[in-house]
């Protein structure tokens, strides 16, 4: 049994302690926006925020979650897809198949929280999620677009949410 605070709500999940957080989120809590891609923290499809930091939930056991830890998933990023990163992603039509994009968006939000005006090099270093459709070109453009918008306020909102 573990206590998880996800998107501002508390959940009790009945899982073995070594269950990766990803599978607790998907199978016990029922939030499926966070994806399984590799299980070994390589691809980033499972990216979530833990206390505002981006982490790969497929390799993080539930036992590592401490009381008071705040988890944010893609579903908790905004109520109506109004986060500047989501809006930039929509404006540029970033997704193709879309499977990796929850993780890409969570990584981008975390990057912009730390570096509101990231350089291309910052993006290269922070955005290590894999996309097989090859949307990288537009991800880069969308991160810059989000950084140029009213991003500061939204980051604050996200951090509060997280």
């Amino acid at each position: 049994m573990a206590q998880l605070n996800i998107n501002g709500r508390n959940y009790e999940v009945n899982v073995e302690a070594d269950t990766p957080l990803l599978w607790a989120i998907r199978e016990q809590v029922g939030l499926t926006g966070t994806k399984y891609g590799c299980g070994v923290a390589q691809c980033g499809a499972c990216s979530i925020h833990l206390n505002g930091e981006v982490v790969r939930s497929c390799a993080l056991p539930v036992a590592a979650i401490k009381p008071g830890d705040r988890i944010t998933t893609i579903e908790g990023l905004s109520k109506d897809s109004s986060h500047p990163v989501q809006k930039a992603w929509a404006a540029i039509d970033v997704p193709q198949c879309g499977y990796c994009q929850s993780g890409q968006i969570m990584a981008a939000v975390a990057l912009l929280a730390k570096k509101p005006k990231p350089t291309d090099k910052d993006i290269d270093e922070a955005m290590t999620n894999i996309c097989r459709c090859g949307t990288y070109h537009r991800i880069r453009a969308a991160v810059h677009m989000a950084a140029g918008g009213k991003f500061a306020a939204a980051v604050t909102a996200d951090q509060q949410n997280a």
Partner: peptide, 13 residues
């Protein structure tokens, strides 16, 4: 696109 930005899209998995 919309459902690919907020986790709402249901893939077979």
């Amino acid at each position: 696109t919309a459902d690919k930005l907020n986790g709402a899209k249901v893939y077979a998995i």
